[in-house]
Amino acid sequence: MKHEDKHISSYSSLAIVLAVLLLLTAFSVWITGFHFGAFTVAVALIIASVKVATVLINFMHLKFENLFLRLLVTGVFVMFALVVILTFVDYYFR
């Protein structure tokens, strides 16, 4: 069966996504050169999260997918974040 209404990413849009990802990588290498302590970790993780979202939306075609799958993927990441938060709550306030 043919893929109904197939969504095709253009080569140029994929190249732009790569350029953005490379810029973000360069930025994270540059910014972690400064030592802000805990702040550096936060900045590095925020940049990594932006990169991951960029890959998910563009390279993994989530922007073309149905709402169900988009919610599912979001839900998985939210769930993992909750696991991390709960673990640290337990770790610090035990």
């Binding site: 893929h3 994270s28 550096t40 993780l45 991951v52 890959v55 998910l56």
Partner: peptide
């Protein structure tokens, strides 16, 4: 017309990339 295999392999490959995106700052940068 039939490219599910490539599509899923690409998804897997992107996952390998995703994990590295987190590993890289955590291990090498901070």
């Amino acid at each position: 017309d039939h490219y599910l295999m490539l599509e899923n392999s690409a998804l897997y490959w992107h996952l390998v990339d995703l994990i590295w995106i987190f590993l890289f700052p955590l291990l090498y940068l901070i």
